[in-house]
Amino acid sequence: MTIAFITGANKGLGRETARRLIELGHTALLGARDPERGRQAAAALGARFVRIDVTDDASVAAHEGRIDVLINNASIHGPSGDATALTGTDALNVFDVNLVGTVRTTNAFLPLLRRSPDPVIINVSSGMGSLAYTHDPSRAESSVIAPLYTASKAALTMLTTQYAKALPGIHINAADPGYAATDLNGNSGPQAVTEGTDAIITLATENPARAPDASSTEQARSPGPEPATYREGDLQRTPPRRVPLCNHKQADQRRNSRSRPRTWCMNRSSRDPVFAG
């Protein structure tokens, strides 16, 4: 049974991720900054609430035990629109949660993850942080002006690749949930929050050993891409078993679908991140 710790989990993608993991028979530790909202969400889902503020070193460090999956989900949007109105304080606030918070939480939880036989870190990033997508006029990402959010997610994706290289014993990926309706975007997304968690759930449960039973294994794996082999030349060596096998042809076909959740597979043995899911 997987023990997963999720930050920013009292609502939106984090809460739905916790709900789905519990439904699959796993243990979800629901992390949130607001004690009242966090306890209410945990009680409703049957999860355990843990107060955590990813901007506070002391709050992040005060944890013991073992976890198998760390899901860095906590995020804020920051100002949109007029870039001339941005302040240094605005930038510091957004990056402190979206990027530095991930550093704090990841480093603080490394001892707990290393007690797991198969540790996993999932960083919830965004296609809004893609340089290619935000420069492609055919994509929705190119029409949004949110300088600090997009910059923080671009940095988070790069941070994920670096952690994946630096921590070979831990399987590290970044997930793009797509444009899901959450408070972060004023519930304007065209896809349901459940669909937005498909990539996260796939990464958290894709190892069959993590599923409580055979039926849960099938249910957990169903949102993700069908397993496929890499094309010749795409890998320098065989991928670690926790990194999803990404079918490049299928991934290319999905790049133009903004509403479909995607996963960046930060495969330590490939040259470049690949979209899948």
Score class of each variant (00 low, 15 high):
D57K: 10
P147Q: 09
R37N: 09
V94N: 04
F49N: 02
V60H: 12
T17W: 08
V69Q: 10
C246Y: 04
A220F: 08
S215E: 15
G224N: 10
I121K: 04
R19D: 02
E36F: 12
D136L: 04
Q162I: 13
I200G: 03
A214V: 14
G31K: 08
S259E: 15
N207C: 09
R37C: 01
S259Y: 14
L184E: 03
T182C: 02
F275D: 01
R139M: 15
I3K: 11
R262A: 07
L13F: 08
W264R: 03
S188D: 09
D96E: 14
L30E: 04
V100L: 11
S142R: 05
M266R: 05
M158A: 03
L113D: 02
E218P: 09
T229P: 13
D183V: 00
H135K: 03
A166M: 05
R66P: 00
V69N: 07
N207M: 09
G88W: 00
N123S: 04
N98V: 01
F5W: 12
T27Y: 11
S80L: 08
R255Y: 08
L235N: 05
F95D: 04
A175D: 01
T27H: 13
S143D: 14
A146C: 13
I170F: 02
A166L: 06
T84L: 06
N247D: 14
A251F: 01
D118S: 13
A4F: 14
S116R: 06
T102D: 02
G233C: 12
T217H: 14
N267Y: 02
W264L: 06
S80Q: 12
S138H: 12
A192E: 14
T202R: 07
D234S: 12
G224T: 07
A62N: 13
L245W: 12
E232N: 06
I76R: 04
V144N: 05
F95G: 03
F95T: 03
T134Y: 05
T87Q: 02
K153I: 02
A174H: 03
I172V: 01
H135D: 07
D56G: 02
R104N: 09
A228N: 09
A174R: 00
T134W: 05
T87C: 01
N247F: 07
A251V: 01
V103Y: 13
P117R: 09
P137E: 07
A47L: 07
R242N: 14
G31P: 07
I76G: 01
M266A: 10
A42P: 05
T161M: 12
N187P: 02
D198C: 06
A58P: 00
E64W: 11
I76W: 01
I121H: 05
N93Y: 07
P168C: 01
E226S: 11
N93P: 00
R48M: 10
N185Q: 09
L86T: 00
G12F: 01
A61H: 05
P227G: 09
S80G: 15
P227V: 06
R114T: 00
Y230F: 14
N185W: 11
K153V: 02
P240G: 09
H26K: 12
T160W: 01
L167V: 05
P208R: 14
V103P: 11
T55Q: 05
L86I: 00
G186W: 14
Q236V: 15
R33D: 03
M1Q: 11
P111Y: 11
Q191L: 13
A146S: 13
N10L: 04
P240Q: 08
E226W: 12
G101C: 02
G178Y: 06
I52Q: 08
A18F: 08
A4Y: 14
